[in-house]
Design a protein around this nucleic acid. Sequence first.
RNA 1: CGGGGUGUGGCGAAGCUUGGUAUCGCGCUUGGUUCGGGACCAAGAGACCUCGGGUUCGAAUCCCGACACUCCGACCA
Length: 479
Amino acid sequence: MANDKKQVEQITDMEVDFTKWYTDVCKKAELIDYSSVKGLMILRPYGYAIWENIMAELDRRFKDTGHQNVSMPMLIPESLLQKEKDHVEGFAPECAWVTMGGSEELEEKLCIRPTSETLFCDHWHNIVHSYRDLPLLYNQWCSVLRWEKTTRPFLRHREFLWQEGHTLHATAEEAIKETEQQLETYAELCENVLAMPVVRGCKTDKEKFAGAERTYTIECMMHDRKALQSGTSHYFGDGFARAFDITFTDKENKLSHPHQTSWGLSTRIIGGIIMTHGDNSGLVLPPKIAPIQVVVLPIAQHKPGVTEKAEELVSRLKALGLRVSGDFTDNSPGWKFAEYEMKGVPLRVEIGPKDIEAGHCVCVRRDNGEKTVVSLDELEIKVPELLSAVQRGLFDKAKANLDEHTYSATSVEEVKNIVETKGGFVKTMWCGGLDCELAMKERAGATSRCIPFAQEHLGDVCPVCGKPAEKMVIWGVAY
RNA sequence: CGGGGUGUGGCGAAGCUUGGUAUCGCGCUUGGUUCGGGACCAAGAGACCUCGGGUUCGAAUCCCGACACUCCGACCA
């Protein structure tokens, strides 16, 4: 019954095929496009604008905590990459290499950075001498390359944009504090800016970063109840410092190895935003990072005074510092409604002849479709209130999804059953053994997402082996 | 990297079995009428059918290969 035009533009229903829905949204909201190289994606202006807003939020936080931005080279000599054994083993399978310079074969092949620990270490080896040189709190915004087998928009690119923070400290305590602080920065960003509730915790040894002593993570639950690792922070101990021979003279005039951290957040988070907040009308963006926070749509704009009034509303709202856009094209109102819903604009303001006569406008929230008639006198008060309400509404909805689909279990069967029938996070005790972790994947289809900071006592034994267990782990299916 | 699917104007598809250089809808352009949930009429523009070989008088169509996208696994942020 639906007419053809509608069918053409429609996106796949998320309940029918979540992955198809996801790629439809990425493309139709004009966030991304494919390039001619697999896994190397084009971030279109609207998608890049979201990233710019995330960058601005994060960069401010990094600088507020004393970090400085730097720019490291994109190529790593093979010998440098191989200095830290675990690290090279972890990354070797997905490195891409430069072997030619012009028409000459290079003496030593150069890896296109998959991450820059080795570059920072090499540099620090040269500049660090004294405890007075520490700490070094560095960050860089760049892209990295990892030759992934399968790729998906935002979630797994071969080349992706990110920031990677790298710090060097005199003591382990200070480095651990830094690692935890940066994880909290990510968690705070997710919750307060992106409206994505997180679970904070540590990765198991199996899941931790190649070369790290400890990996901290924030895990988010997507609308389909799968987990997305949304930010990580690693404590390296002095392993890299030893491998790269970074030393400094401490206060007691003894030669020591400094302690190191790294932490990263990538454009993957945009995939997280899409899958956390999106719905069957398309993207839904949290106001704090939406490139367009408010769109003003004139109704019957040819009628006298309508366009002028709509333009006036745009400038009044812009004067508040909001990101506002008006659409004065001659597309029909219905077309525009659907278009800005697809693009996830948090608030729509409709203004037509009837409204002007009555001295009001109609505001429509993207998150729940709620319409509010706002007197034009109160525009500057009500619009920011509605945007806050959307921001809060998105968080609450995501939090409810997380809470409703987090379960506790005491047996492998129970975990398997939950994972297969409901999906979500399952908490169990765990003995800490790798074999039990592998068995859980084999028998229940779930991997460990994290050992949450917020521990609970759910029993005394590991559900896999029955041995004493002190830690609680969260299991789930991950992106 | 294993198993499946797909590749035809910008988008979505038909045509392929049974070879004869291409069809439809949307979008786009121009003009007009419209405008509170993807408007309508009219006139236009736009495709060597993913790429490379082969068979043939002739290939979108048959054969071989490559590449890309996609889904399911394994690997990974």
